[in-house]
């Protein structure tokens, strides 16, 4: 009787693990899903691993135009009309703790869920 219970528990565990494994392999790794936000609202989610070739995303704000460049595995602010251009100087988006922020045009580009990095970053803008 006791053995049967253990067999059942073992089977359920294997079943759950298999389901999780299948689920994970069907959905892309969340570490390369990037959210582009303006004024706190989501503009678009981009999967950097699925990107082929170069794509430009244009956003307009109070201080003019921002152009975001997306290539395979990489996203950056290519150009901005804002006065300080700190978002362009930031370069490529590398960690969850350090998103690309354009304060004048209220744009935030960040990883949606990147595991393995710090939870927050002191001194970064978010």
């Amino acid at each position: 009787m006791k053995n049967r219970i253990w067999i059942i528990i073992f089977s359920v565990t294997v079943l759950v693990c298999t389901a999780v494994w299948i689920g994970l392999s069907f959905f892309p790794s969340p570490s390369k899903i990037v959210g582009i936000y303006q004024n706190g609202s989501l503009v678009e989610k981009v999967d950097l691993t699925a990107q082929t070739g170069e794509r430009s995303i244009e956003l307009n704000g109070d201080y003019g135009k921002n152009i975001i460049s997306v290539t395979h595995g990489r996203i950056e602010m290519k150009s901005a009309d804002c006065p300080d251009k700190l978002c362009v100087k930031h370069g490529e988006l590398k960690s969850a703790g350090s998103p690309i922020v354009c304060l004048p045009n209220r744009i935030v580009i960040k990883f949606e869920n990147q595991s393995g990095s710090a939870d927050a970053e002191a001194g970064a803008l978010l």
Partner: peptide
């Protein structure tokens, strides 16, 4: 505990 990174002042995308 929460992990809070300190930004590299020379390269804000590094810590």
């Amino acid at each position: 505990p929460w992990s809070v990174a300190v930004t590299d002042p020379d390269n804000s995308s590094e810590q």
